[in-house]
């Protein structure tokens, strides 16, 4: 029998060996997360070994950052990077705005069929990118469902081959980002206290005044978080582009190309480091911003 300290029970007499239960977890992540990240970090500093693409620097004038220099100098990679950023930003913006409706509905109302609807929205989120890419092809490809249907109904094949164009890429990305946005935003919106809205009503605020002055400022963090999450996922998404993208290259696809076709591992590693750094920076900035925001509001 041991004495039970009241309050928490987190006394100094607790068993130290219990911590060993977390050891396998630590080992897995050290071996398969930290070690690989360290590896690509080191590889990215080695001279490029591409068989096709020698890039701007060339191996003779190699400095440790030459892969990164090449990444930011070569117009092809710059374009892919720009595409990635623009595509992700527009998809994130679109997803955040579009999912506001469903998220608000799910957070504030109860109605029959709600669970089925939510389950439906959760579905695309858990599909791998290639599958979403295939869905885009089957709907919007050259012989996709929508062009075929519209051909049959109106005689004109609408949206034929859209899947392979920028618009198809945007739609496919939105397809799996909207559900993600709904989930992220819904959990934040359900924390919004409806009494604040009631208070504003009793003070005479119209619907628009309430939305602009009360609801919007209070859900702003959730909107920012949703934007950040969807942006960051789009940035790293690879499967959709792999299936759909014919001419329009994005950075993850370029990375894949470097590995599989050219086997330029150092350059591919530099790209991977860039993508990881971008994701980490975004994550960190968001975390800081949220913390500051919350310490201001809910101290």
């Amino acid at each position: 029998m041991e004495a039970a300290p009241l309050a928490t029970g987190a006394g100094p007499r607790r068993r130290a060996w219990e911590l060993l239960l977390a050891l396998p977890l630590a080992v897995v992540f050290a071996a398969f997360l930290l070690y690989p990240i360290l590896t690509i970090l080191l590889t990215s500093l080695k001279p490029g070994s591409g068989v096709l693409h020698s890039g701007g620097g060339g191996s003779s004038s190699h400095t440790i950052f030459s892969n990164y220099l090449e990444l930011f100098r070569d117009p092809i990679y710059c374009e892919a990077m720009l595409h990635s950023l623009v595509l992700s930003a527009s998809v994130a913006l679109g997803a955040t705005l579009l999912c506001l409706g469903p998220a608000w509905l799910f957070a504030r109302y109860e109605f029959p069929g709600k669970r089925l609807m939510r389950a439906g929205f959760a579905l695309p989120m858990s599909l791998s990118g290639i599958l979403v890419g295939f869905l885009a092809v089957i709907m919007l490809g050259r012989v996709g469902f929508i062009p075929q249907m519209s051909q049959g109904l109106t005689g004109k094949a609408w949206l034929s081959g859209a899947a392979y164009q920028l618009s198809g890429l945007v739609i496919a990305y939105l397809y799996f980002e909207i559900p993600r946005g709904v989930v992220t935003l819904e959990s934040a919106l359900s924390k919004f206290d409806p009494r604040l809205d009631a208070a504003a009503r009793s003070l005479g605020a119209s619907r628009w005044q309430r939305f602009l002055w009360i609801v919007l400022p209070l859900i702003a963090p959730a909107l920012v978080a949703t934007f950040a999450v969807t942006f960051s996922v789009s940035l790293g998404s690879f499967g959709v582009a792999l299936v759909l993208s014919k001419r329009f290259s994005v950075l993850p696809l370029e990375l894949f190309h470097q590995v599989v076709a050219i086997t330029n591992f150092p350059l591919a590693s530099a790209m991977a480091v860039f993508l990881i750094a971008l994701a980490l920076a975004l994550n960190f900035a968001l975390g800081r911003w949220m913390r500051r925001h919350f310490s201001l509001r809910h101290a």
Binding site: R195, A199, A200, G204, S206
Partner: peptide, 10 residues
């Protein structure tokens, strides 16, 4: 509520 001009303390 917004057109009643009733003060409300929660």
């Amino acid at each position: 509520a917004e057109r009643r001009d009733f003060g409300l303390v929660f």
